[in-house]
Design a protein around this nucleic acid. Sequence first.
DNA 1: TCTGGGGTCCTAGGACCC
DNA 2: TCTGGGGTCCTAGGACCC
Length: 422
Amino acid sequence: MTIYALVDANNFYATCEKVFDPSLADVPLVVLSNNDGCIVARSAEAKELGIPMGAPMHQWKGFCANHGVVIKSSNYALYGDMSSRMLAILQKLCPDVESYSIDESFLKLDGFSDATVLGYEIRQTLQQHIKVTCGVGIGPSKTLAKFANHIAKKHPEYGGVFSVSDAPKIEFEQLMAYYPVNEIWGVGRQLSKRLTADGIETVLDLSRCDAKAIHARYGVVLAKTVRELRGEACISFDDIAAPKQQIIASRSFAGVTTDYQTVKAALSHHISRAAEKLRLQESVCAHVYVMIRTNPFREQDPQYRKTILMPLPHPTADTAVLMKAAMAALRKGFIPGFRYHKCGVMLGEIHPMNALQTDLFASVDDPKRLRLMGLLDSINKRQGSGTLHMASTQLSAAWHMRAENRSPRYTTCWEELPVAYA
DNA sequence: TCTGGGGTCCTAGGACCC
DNA sequence: TCTGGGGTCCTAGGACCC
């Protein structure tokens, strides 16, 4: 039987900020989402103060000022780099690693004689090498490894590592009976509301349900969860990252706008980013979706949201072709008069560039254009993103997002390296 | 004044066909 | 006056995740 581990960094973004600024060591700290909108990470001290996850920043500004909470805009260049260092360390310790999110990885522990010992070694190594503390959960399925990870973090007596098979059955059942069903991976707000109404309130309740009955009433996803909770691995393990099937680039504006040119400039910027991501994974796409919407939180405003699909004449990774299609979609979907708050683009129908066969499609990108795109990407990579861009991006800068308290990109930008004084 | 962004998977329902 | 039903394919949207 395969044993899975889930390694998950504690307070990852907040920790990344603290690693490079020792003066923040014991200070409560929060990290904000893009646009400085809401709180997406909290240090242990900030959690203790009772600041909730996902809280709108504007509601907590006064509180943070009163309690000396340090506020950081998000710095994804830094977190992304720390994340790859973390992954590299895990890959050294274990041959089968699936990177699940920026701060979480699943490991397959086949061939290790003592999974728990390895868990402690992982914890110690990450602490030593990159000053990131993590929890390790171990179990016979991914869902159980996730739940074990939750226990490892919430119950300090386990020392940050919890293995389902180490715990006596009665002890584990007590833990399952203690936690509400929404602590389980895959059970969100809607499902837990329905489950609770049906009398399934705890993790233990759910694990004892009949999988067939759950399938009939709640669907195939939750039925899998039930089987996973009983130790039957149903969710596959992917150690090589598959290319993305859809690529999204979107942002809300710093405020709202009624101006077509402003939306167009923002959209143009997003297309460039999305196309760059598409070429980075060596793919082409055949669908462009353009999304625009008003601010749903402004209930006094008339609301409008629209997604417009624009099929492309042939699969492409050419920014100019994508741009033309997206602009046509925007003309179709833009209704003057609304106060727009966000726009974005999604690329769909993605195929690997090299698998395209000319007899399957009417035509493919001109190799000359592809070389031009490659040049564009390499200049932007060397000189900084946005050095070369489409003219339409410059139409307006009115949409640009806020990031008032971003820390330096310590590890990825020469100009922002940390300075050591002797 | 100010409420994220980027993903995956599943399903309901419409269009179309015979 | 009576006016099918089942299968397939596609898309939009929802639920979930971090």
